[in-house]
Amino acid sequence: MNKRKKPPIPISGVVYGEIIYWCTCVSALVVLYGTIKSFLEVDQTIPVEYLLNAVFEGRSVEAVWTGSALQKSPDALTYLAILNSGEAITVAGIAFGVLSVGPAIFFSAAFMWRSHNEFFAVTALLSGAFAVIAPFVFFLL
């Protein structure tokens, strides 16, 4: 090989990186939309000014939410129920970015397998399965 020639880049890595990169960019736009909506919505389920004041006053998580219209700490299902609110859209945007890890790993594992790196394809599949199952395990606990 020419000593100055750039080495080839593994396609499985590029696939993994591209999926996560673009999903993260989309999630950023969703989060931006959620932020604007939080400040602009008139009939707020979760008033943004109240949230910021409560958080920077040092109130505990429970106290922050107890003082809001929700009156209890929201879980994932609560966010789904109020998905039209700015705060829920913002959290959904963050969650979308986080969830992009799972499919990125699975697609990358397929290319890893095709390039005869079976061991790493299997470790990738196991990691992907763990990343996808983890949220549901926590919800059950």
């Binding site: 989060v31 943004v48 949230l51 910021l52 994932a76 700015g86 829920a88 913002t90 959290v91 963050i94």
Partner: peptide, 14 residues
């Protein structure tokens, strides 16, 4: 677990 506990405040984290 943080999202599920309501500890992730969207407007702060965004």
């Amino acid at each position: 677990p943080y999202i599920n506990a309501g500890a992730l405040i969207g407007v702060v984290a965004a």
